[in-house]
Write a protein that binds this DNA or RNA. Structure first.
Length: 821
RNA sequence: GCGGACGUGGCGAAAUUGGCAGACGCGCCAGACUUAGGAUCUGGUGCCGAAAGGCGUGCGGGUUCAAGUCCCUCCGUCCGCACCA
């Protein structure tokens, strides 16, 4: 149908008006369901590779389908990228905007323990419920591409990728002290320990030695930092990644210790002349090895035992330093030849550097605190600071430092390392806080690790053709106190044959962590049904990278780091075409309850999205979440503000009565200005994620239209197009009522004209000595002299300038005149 | 302790990045129409003041013709990390 068709055969406004009997209220319940069905039936948002168009891949973090259903926080992110996706579509891009479910995880398993309902059953129900809720909000997801990490078709490839990691030597088994949650009975990655407590249940985490599958993410540490510089990530995300990886450049130095070498890592080799003692972590190998040489063995053993019992939290919560001297032994400073005392103390960590330090109390606050307690010498080797008060950690010129004297920090460091290398007792060294990724979980509801253990052949990967290795059905989901996975009880499944020798072997009973499936899901979206490969080269080449990825700040250290690593590994193997998965990453703020607290079931302040959709409609809900405040900041829910947006949608609906054909195109300069201003503002603000002010711009425009007697059709059509990414159902409905038979979401995005958007007459503020005294109306870009004369002619100005001398007049074009007297 | 973000009406917030502070919305006040329903419409609304006018962006200072915006000191809030040598 063409534009002409819409007023067919009618020539008076009144007559035209009669053709649409508007209900008094905007009936969103019927309207929204109607359009959702049409979009679904017509597969409006389904995409395929189309080389005639530029592609755009918009991604949001897929949810864990919890039993509580969708949280009002989820749609904030989904709506934001839905708006971006819809706008890009209207701008001619081939847009991939997919959704799926990260469906392995602890809650489903805990629920199973409590109720006996199998995780597979509850997960399927929850996914169904989430899908219904998401569809009720009118997102433009391509549902044909939905993925589900707990389906065998999906985790087949997660397992396959694990095998690739194993074959490339990046997955290995190691007995290490892991973070153990005694309540969940599960090993946790460092990333899952928050302030010494289990991220999930809050119980205090203890250390426990266990054999675990590890992934050598540290091999990628440098690249994970360095490659950030070419990415369009918000600064806070980059900073968090960098801090988490924690690169420190320094040196390793060997100190003579008995007839052995005691190696330390330091970032300040320049302060080596100020070393007055050394400290080992209580777990350091030398303590055990040389125990019989120490004079105070009983005291040392008692200290080690005490330290072992302390959790990390206890160790760090108490920053008063404790320790024991290893009496009877000395170390030798390689720079000075001086003999120094050696201590053990739990302020030195076993897992970082070499587990031993050289202590420079004059220039390190921790060493300083320790030296004060144990009355050890404090020798300053840099000028500046006062060691009577505190350690001096700043820069200065070296003193008491032999050949380093007179050098500053940087020069001193270079020289000190150079000297150590020449004399064979040291070398430059880079250390990272990042540890290898603990990849085993003693749990049921996760991807089985496709490895078997044979007495003869050791750990063996299962054959690729046997993938997926399906998770067996069990009915008892409790791990035992030894921390063995529930899978250990499925003996039929556990006992198998060795792929190498054919003899008896046992399957790995630990499963993968939740982070595994989410490390590559964005790749699967490009080709979700493929059962030959995880995604075809063609699909990956066309769709990757993700152009814009939005998610929560809570995932920017863990998930983002893991998935970047995982992707880089696949890139190195030649399976994906790009070395980074996400070109742009943004983050949204949380939605809090009205009192500013987090929403939670226990607090009873949870807002249910279903109720909002039922009572106000999806469009109002979407608009409200965008209007609530700056997108990247936390915002509190408010029912009253929601009403304001509801009024707005009703107004848009009501305006239809005034749309009239004889005024098809706006002619007055004011009308044109209002329209083009709105186009430019909304367009720009969507790109910048300033959704709250984009909605404001729409409101301003609607207020303008409300004040018109009749609305030229084009002005209303532009409103609908600009509104359609935010409130797609309403826009679609009114578009259809205008007489169009094709969908508004397939129309092209309006072009704003900057010239028409600007006024020919500008209001210029007039100031005297920086204080506002009045305003004048001038033609746009009027020359300074005209503006000056007009300003001076103002009553208010004339009165004040007559009494004093004008020193200077500053004219800022189209903005302001400031008269200095 | 370290790192980051931030502090603007009664409230959520805007401010073209140095140029009329408070757009837009909530709430509130007044009026209209109605008085069966979170109603709708019109106008007003930073503070003090009857008015002229004055004062206003956490506090104090500075730069500038001009500061919410830039610089320095302090205070406060939130979020990360937390003995990483």
């Amino acid at each position: 149908m063409t534009a002409q068709a819409r007023y067919n055969g009618r020539d008076s406004f009144e007559e035209w008006q009669k053709t649409w009997q508007l209900e008094d209220r905007y009936n969103f319940r019927t309207i929204e369901k109607k359009w959702q069905k049409i979009w679904e039936d017509e597969k409006t948002y389904h995409v395929e590779i189309d080389r005639s168009k530029p592609k755009f891949y918009a991604l949001v973090e897929f949810p864990y389908p919890s039993g509580q259903g969708l949280h009002v926080g989820h749609p904030r992110s989904y709506t934001a990228l839905d708006i971006i996706a819809r706008k890009k579509r209207m701008q001619g891009f081939n847009v991939l905007y997919p959704m799926g479910f990260d469906s392995f995880g602890l809650p489903a398993e805990n629920y199973a323990v409590k109720t006996g309902i199998h995780p597979a059953v509850s997960t399927a129900q929850n996914i169904e419920n989430y899908t219904r809720q998401l569809k009720s909000l009118g997102f433009s997801f391509d549902w044909d591409r939905a993925v589900n990490t707990s389906s065998p078709e999906y985790y087949k490839w997660t397992q396959w990728m694990f095998l690739e990691l194993y074959k490339h030597g990046l997955a290995y088994k190691d007995k290490i002290a892991i973070n153990w949650c005694p309540a969940c009975k599960v090993g946790l990655a460092n990333e899952e320990v928050v302030g010494g407590h289990c991220e999930r249940c809050g119980a205090e985490v203890v250390r426990k030695n266990k054999e675990q599958w590890m992934i050598a993410i540290t091999k990628y540490a440098d690249r994970l930092i360095d490659d950030l510089k070419d990415l369009d990530f918000i600064e806070s995300v980059k900073t968090q990644q960098i801090n988490w990886i924690g690169r420190s450049e320094g040196a390793e130095l060997d100190f003579a210790f008995e007839d052995d070498k005691l190696t330390v890592f330091t970032t300040r080799p320049d302060t080596a002349f100020g070393v007055t003692y050394m400290v080992l972590a209580p777990e350091h190998a030398f303590v055990e090895k040389y125990m019989n040489r120490f004079e105070n063995q009983a005291e040392i053993k008692a200290y080690i035992e005490k330290a072992a019992k302390k959790s990390d939290l206890e160790r760090t919560a108490d920053d008063s330093k404790t320790g024991v001297e290893l009496k009877g032994v000395k170390a030798k400073n390689p720079y000075t030849g001086e003999e120094i005392a050696v201590f053990i103390s739990d302020y030195v960590l076993t897992g970082y550097g070499t587990g031993a330090i050289m202590a420079v109390p004059a220039h390190d606050s921790r060493d300083y605190a320790f030296a004060k307690i144990f009355n050890l010498p404090i020798v300053p080797v840099l000028e500046g600071g006062d060691i009577e008060i505190e350690a001096f950690e700043g820069d200065g010129l070296h003193i008491n430092s032999g050949f380093l004297n007179g050098l500053n920090k940087t020069d001193g460091m270079n020289k000190a390392i150079e000297y150590a290398v020449q004399h064979g007792f040291g070398r430059p060294k880079v250390n990272f806080k990042l540890r290898d990724w603990v990849f085993s979980r003693q749990r049921y509801w996760g991807e089985p690790i496709p490895m078997v253990y044979c007495e003869k052949c050791g750990w063996q990967p299962i054959d690729e053709k046997d993938l997926p290795l399906k998770l067996p059905m069990v009915s008892d989901f409790l791990p035992n106190d030894e921390g063995e996975s529930p899978l250990a009880k499925a003996t039929d499944w556990v006992n198998t044959t060795c792929p190498k020798c054919g003899g008896h072997a046992r399957r790995e009973t630990d499963v993968m962590p939740n982070w595994a499936g989410s490390s590559w899901y964005f790749l699967r979206y490009t080709d979700p049904k493929n059962d030959e490969v995880f995604a075809s080269k063609e699909a990956l080449k066309y769709w990757m990278n993700v152009d814009w990825y939005n998610g929560g700040m809570e995932h920017v250290t863990l998930h983002l780091l893991y998935s970047r690593f995982w992707h880089k590994f696949l890139y190195d193997c030649g399976y994906v075409p790009t070395s980074e998965p996400y070109q742009k990453r943004t983050a949204h703020g949380m939605i809090l309850a009205s009192n500013g607290e987090k929403m939670s079931k226990s607090r009873g302040n949870v807002v249910n999205p279903d109720e909002i959709v039922e009572n106000y409609g999806a469009d109002t809900f979407r608009l409200y979440e965008m209007f609530i405040g700056p997108f990247d900041q936390a915002a509190s829910w408010s029912d009253e503000s929601l009403m304001g947006v509801y009024r707005f949608t009703s107004k848009v609906y009501g305006l239809f009565k005034k749309v009239y054909k004889n005024e098809d195109v706006p002619t007055s300069a004011d009308d044109l200005r209002a329209m083009h201003r709105c186009i430019l503002d909304v367009t720009e603000r969507i790109d910048q994620m300033k959704f709250n002010t984009a909605v404001s711009a729409l409101m301003t425009y609607v207020n303008y239209l409300s004040n018109m007697k009749m609305i030229p059709a084009q002005m209303y059509e532009v409103l609908l197009k600009l509104l359609s990414p935010f409130a797609p159902h309403l826009a679609e409905e009114m578009w259809a009522r205008l007489g169009y038979s094709d969908l508004i979401v397939l129309q092209s995005w309006p072009e704003g004209d900057k010239k028409l958007a600007d006024s020919e007459v500008v209001t210029i503020a007039v100031q005297i000595n920086g204080k506002m005294r009045g305003t004048i109306e001038c033609a746009k870009d009027a020359d300074d002299e005209t503006v000056k004369q007009k300003a001076l002619a103002l009553d208010n100005v004339a009165r004040q300038t007559s009494q004093s001398e004008i020193k200077k007049i500053i004219v800022v074009k189209n903005r302001i005149v400031n008269i200095v007297v």
